[in-house]
Design a protein around this nucleic acid. Structure first.
Lengths: 215, 215
DNA sequence: GTAATTTTAAAACGTTCGTTTAAAAAGGGT
DNA sequence: ACCCTTTTTAAACGAACGTTTTAAAATTAC
């Protein structure tokens, strides 16, 4: 069934890095197959179309990330004492870093793909995630509500998307940001360092006192 | 010099909405010129190339937004009493809403273009902004440091980009988010409402207590 | 070992893209 | 009216795209 190194896997590996770097439509199948050292037609043979290849690339990351995250979240929800919002967001660290092992720069690529999928078309990926990983999403809100019961479901909705925006943008452009940080004030920081830097920011935002917001 | 309604302007109007909707490379010149009811070749005649058209679209928004923002920020920096971070971020409201008058959905389009420009290629727009509007950027940090003197320039750098990510993502996908809010809990909110909702979140993040973050 | 199936390979398909060309139309100055 | 410049138009260009086709090669099954 599998040879030395699967053609399918080689295509996925090449595609995911190129998609993250140049975007979906700016990455041609010829570029992907050249980097993967496979024949052009093999993409259509193994995946059917370019669109299905895109879905497969994203699905492979989600299949690793989501179960790991869900494990952490259910543990947090099951424990007796009340977690902090910081605890909830810290649950994302290990699953995100696990992506780094699946492929080089896996964490960054995952976030870039997430961001691109969210903006490149309307709701396509959003629908995929909610239908395939609705339980995980429910556990995210459950854990956050346990950590901050004062949040209305509406406020939680908005702040979750604010959180997503920060995370996607920060991690997605992390390469450029880390370069600037190095050039401007000689700060060396890696992906894990950046994740740990953004999490307190996200927790603060999630804990914004509601008295200053209207409605 | 100008006719009833400039061909150049018609192209810019059509291009900016299509760019925001479909992205730069997924928007063809034929689609733009058809919507603008002008000849295909007029884009190359008036702008030179598609790339220069993209720059012109973004520049038109920046030329309106940046001076307005700078006015607010310099006023804030000139006043005697210390502003809050909330005050600084509130300075963005009017300039953002001014874009709404220049073109329909101007605010959202501006943020979408900002986000796409930041992710579609590395540093191209970033360089343009820093060279053309470096003074405004300097005033942003100046105002924020006045509001929160405890911030190190490094922390400010990171939090500013966290802020940018939240704003770009939130406003860029505001259409979808407002639709979901309407469907899920019948919440009607417009662009100004969304801006005013995200600002306290951003201020909280910017004011994150540094004792929990490690260097 | 041979037959059936799966995978790879090269070539071509038709379409769409950004851009260029060359001529027609419109505008402005005197 | 005339010339000169600017703008618009229609048509075509070459390149790159995703996909399909057809046959060879490799793998599997018996």
């Amino acid at each position: 069934m599998v040879s030395k190194l699967d053609t399918k896997t080689r295509i996925l590996d090449a595609a995911e890095s190129l998609f993250a770097e140049h975007g979906f439509s700016d990455t041609s199948l010829r570029l992907i197959t050249t980097r993967a050292s496979v024949n052009l037609a093999s993409v259509n043979y193994h995946f059917g179309s370019k669109k299905e290849l895109i879905q497969a690339v994203i699905a492979r990351h989600l299949e690793l990330f989501m179960p790991l995250l869900n494990e952490k979240l259910t543990a947090l929800c099951a424990q007796a004492e009340k977690p902090s919002v910081l605890d909830v967001f810290n649950s994302f660290v290990d699953p995100l870093l696990a992506l780094e092992q699946q492929s080089k720069n896996g964490t960054v690529i995952f976030m870039q793909l997430l961001g691109r999928s969210y903006t490149d078309q309307q709701g396509h990926l959003r629908w995929y995630i909610t239908t395939h990983y609705g339980e995980v999403l429910a556990n995210i809100t459950k854990a956050l509500l346990k950590a901050n019961p004062a949040l209305s479901s509406q406020e939680l909705f908005w702040r979750l998307h604010f959180t997503l925006g920060t995370a996607v943008f920060t991690m997605g452009s992390s390469g450029a940001l880390m370069d600037i940080a190095k050039a401007d004030f000689n700060q060396d920081i890696d992906v894990e360092g950046l994740i740990r830097k953004v999490i307190p920011y996200l927790a603060s935002g999630m804990n914004t006192s509601t008295e200053t917001t209207s409605m």
